[in-house]
Simulated scan of single mutants.
Amino acid sequence: MNDRDELSLLVSRLGRWLDEKSPGDGRALFTEDAEVHTLGGVSKGVDALVEQARRNHQVPTQHFVTDPLVEVDGDQATIEANLLVVFVKDEGLRLLGERYELRAARTGDGWRLTRVQARPIWEVAGV
């Protein structure tokens, strides 16, 4: 598998990990010093970002991550992708259209995310 394929798979695994309520300690996806910037808050360090993910994904969710654009520069990479997130709440669905701006680094254990930035584009609630 080449770097671009591995990085696209890493992004897919991120969406699935969030939908599965963030199992494990996150180290299969993130570096120790990774940071996350989303509507749910800002976290730095893998333990803090795992806690943020669990806190913000308590209801059923589904993350659709599409069209990853991967740029590799040695042991560093940037990835942009479209993101549609569906939150299933008692009062109805909440839909978010966002753009992922991700950074990754090659580690001894493979590619890991160092930064997740979710940029909101649109939102619909109560569907």
Rank of each mutant, 00 (worst) to 15 (best):
P68T: 03
Q76T: 11
Q62Y: 12
T78F: 05
V86E: 13
E98C: 15
R4H: 12
A125T: 13
R99H: 03
R55C: 02
S43A: 15
L9D: 14
G97N: 01
G41R: 05
A118D: 01
E51M: 03
T114K: 10
L69M: 13
D75S: 14
L7D: 04
T31I: 05
S8T: 14
S43M: 11
D25I: 10
Q117P: 04
V46M: 01
T114F: 06
T38E: 06
F30C: 06
V50N: 03
G15M: 09
F87I: 01
N82L: 13
A34I: 10
T78A: 14
Q58N: 00
V11E: 06
R4E: 15
V11G: 04
Q58D: 07
D90M: 08
L69A: 13
D47P: 03
R94L: 14
R16G: 09
P68D: 10
T38Y: 03
V42T: 13
V59A: 15
V88T: 09
P23S: 09
G45V: 06
G15K: 06
D5Y: 00
G92W: 03
L102A: 07
R13H: 11
I121C: 06
V124T: 11
Y100W: 11
R16Q: 14
L29Y: 02
D109W: 02
V116C: 04
D90N: 09
D5A: 15
V124M: 13
V85S: 10
D73V: 01
N82G: 15
G108V: 02
L18F: 12
E20Y: 00
R112Y: 01
T78R: 15
V65P: 00
F87T: 00
E101Q: 15
L14G: 00
L93Y: 11
T114N: 08
A104T: 02
I79N: 08
K89H: 10
P68A: 11
R99V: 10
V42Y: 13
A118H: 03
R54L: 09
T107Q: 01
S8K: 08
F64N: 10
G74M: 10
S22G: 09
S12R: 11
L83Q: 05
T114I: 07
N82H: 12
Q76R: 15
G45F: 03
I79S: 09
V46C: 15
R55E: 11
R112H: 01
L93V: 05
G92E: 05
A105F: 02
L49Y: 01
E51V: 12
